[in-house]
Structures are given as C-alpha cells and as structure tokens.
C-alpha cells in the first residue's frame, strides 16, 4: 500500500497521504477505497495522483458508496499534471 503518515507540508493536521501517481482507473479508486476503509469518520486523506479521469471518478465513487466527501483538489505543479485530492472520510 502506498499510504504514508502526515507530512510537514500538509495543510491538514493528522492527515493520511496516499500516493497513487502512475495508477489508472479503476485502481485509483480501489487504492483510495482500501485506505479509507481503515480510517475513521472525519479523518482526512490526501491522495497524490496523476491520472486525469480519476479527478472525477474518485469523488463520484466515494460519494456513491458513502465513503468520503471531496474537500478540494490542488495542483502540485503548474507544468505537470499532478494533483492532491483532499477527502474527508464519512
């Protein structure tokens, strides 16, 4: 699993990071789901990703399965398609 403990750079305290850069759908959601399953309600998950379709697919699937809500999506680099997706476990 690619989950990590909180980083100093994170804007969210006690968040969990998951790096799925290089993964494509549906594995992007599968890894996100497996990480969310072991978190508790209210926990923050920061997902590092680079597969554009996942920006839509992960929040939609999380909502459909009542797993998490999307808080925000941030660009990591302006010149490279990489993002951090912030989710809160429901």
């Amino acid at each position: 699993m690619l989950a990590m403990n909180s980083r100093d750079k994170s804007n969210y305290k006690n968040s969990t990071q998951l790096d799925i850069r290089g993964k494509m759908c549906p594995l992007t959601f599968v890894y996100t789901k497996l990480t969310l399953e072991v978190l508790t309600k209210g926990d923050i998950l920061e997902v590092y990703l680079d597969f554009p379709a996942a920006l839509k697919n992960i929040p939609e699937s999380c909502k459909r399965q009542n797993l998490a809500e999307l808080l925000e999506i941030k660009e990591i680099h302006s010149d490279k398609p990489e993002w951090i997706m912030i989710l809160r476990k429901i």
Partner: peptide, 23 residues
C-alpha cells in the same frame, strides 16, 4: 492481514463493489 499489490490488482473489480471492498 494486508492485501498484496498483486491481490489488489487481481480482485480490483470486486473490491470496487460497495458490497465487497477490502474488508
């Protein structure tokens, strides 16, 4: 018991299901 990378890939289409998942 954690699922291995290979298991996550092998079972991904049923882990995706709300009724199955990693649990």
């Amino acid at each position: 018991m954690d699922l291995t990378e290979e298991q996550i890939n092998r079972y991904s289409r049923q882990i995706v299901l709300k009724e199955v998942g990693g649990i």
